[in-house]
């Protein structure tokens, strides 16, 4: 079961993302990946800290 195994699944999300980024951005992939990681980190941290709620509550456009 997944609990007993310390090894991650054969295909790790991080690796898959890196491969996708390489396909999209070629040799610039590491630079874009780093910029995106920093930005996502800021977004996640702000959301954790400030607990923003969606506005408007109901989407305007479905």
């Amino acid at each position: 079961s997944w609990r007993s195994s310390a090894a991650p699944p054969s295909e790790r999300p991080g690796e898959r993302r890196a491969a996708e980024m390489k396909k999209l951005y070629g040799e610039d992939a590491p630079k874009i990946l780093a910029m995106e990681a920093a930005m996502q980190l800021t977004f996640d941290r702000n959301c954790d800290l400030k607990q923003p709620k969606y506005w408007p509550v109901i989407p305007l456009k479905l």
């Binding site: 959301c47 400030k50 607990q51 923003p52 709620k53 969606y54 506005w55 408007p56 989407p59 305007l60 456009k61």
Partner: peptide, 9 residues
């Protein structure tokens, strides 16, 4: 004070 805006909107 704090909000999330859906880009689709």
């Amino acid at each position: 004070k704090e909000a999330l805006i859906r880009c689709r909107d």
